[in-house]
Design a protein around this nucleic acid. Structure first.
Lengths: 150, 150
DNA sequence: TATTGTTATACTCTATAACTATA
DNA sequence: TATAGTTATAGAGTATAACAATA
């Protein structure tokens, strides 16, 4: 029998947020592993699918991935025949999903939706709506603050 | 003027959860940097402060840090004179904060509380209470599921 | 001058496997 | 047999700096 241990971080919202986020990502990673995709790769496919001819710099800005890290990520997806790059102008290239990429992105999206339903299924529709709204608000608020500084 | 880009992950709760969690951790890391502490180190100090003579394996289980990763973490805090290890039995050691460690832990805790107030300050008291309750519920639910599997 | 894409590099966090000493 | 602690190592994710080519 284990002695009871006090949890001194139980009152911290930020701690709980991170803890649940880590769980969620771990579950989602497992679900995506069947498709040989990682969460970052899946999100890139989603953005390209919804925005044909988007550039990798634009994707990086939207998803919070640095330019330097987009390069190997996009190269890997291109190597697997999931996307095709066509020059937009001399320095940038528009990205689009191939047929294979479209199929895989659709499966990944289904996995993401299923993960969301499972992981947050215990919350009522109203709770989920409220949670989504709060997270969006927190994100935009902090984003504004960062923009003001930078 | 940037062309509008569709955000295809805007409806995914898991995505928003992770995004906000990353922001929160980045802000907290910055706040802790003044104290030359990282979030994981601060959380370890908190647990030791609330549970004198706790072992590093117990801390790891509570915080979700692997035994193998606790070793250098605890060694680093000991080297800085923040905690003291005394043998409990032949194979385990009880950890306790030194005076210096207690002082630093108190400052780190103040930073954590301030971070929480700032970062989640836009939410009403009721919203924060609800959010904390939902995050706790999600965590325990998934934890139960993992225990059932394993 | 600013931006795109690239390379090289490094740090943190996390994970596994193998080992010892002890319970 | 199970647990505590250690060591070595590897993989992700993320970060910066510097560069060439182009806008």
């Amino acid at each position: 029998m284990a002695t009871h241990i006090e949890d001194p971080v139980d009152g911290l919202l930020g701690y709980h947020l991170r803890r649940v986020s880590v769980q969620s990502m771990a579950d989602f990673s497992t679900a995506l592993a069947r498709l040989e995709l990682r969460p970052a790769e899946a999100s890139v496919l989603f953005v390209i699918g919804a925005n044909p001819q988007v550039t990798q710099s634009q994707i990086g800005r939207m998803l919070g991935i640095k330019r330097a890290n987009m390069t190997p990520l996009v190269a890997s997806l291109a190597r697997r025949g999931l996307l095709r790059a066509t020059p937009k102008d001399g320095r940038s290239q528009g990205l689009a999903l191939t047929a294979k990429g479209t199929t895989l992105a659709r499966k990944a999206r289904a996995a993401a939706d299923q993960h969301d339903r499972r992981f947050f299924g215990a919350l009522s529709t109203e709770e989920r709506r409220a949670l989504l709204g709060q997270l969006r608000a927190l994100w935009h608020q902090r984003r504004r603050a960062a923009t003001d500084e930078g």
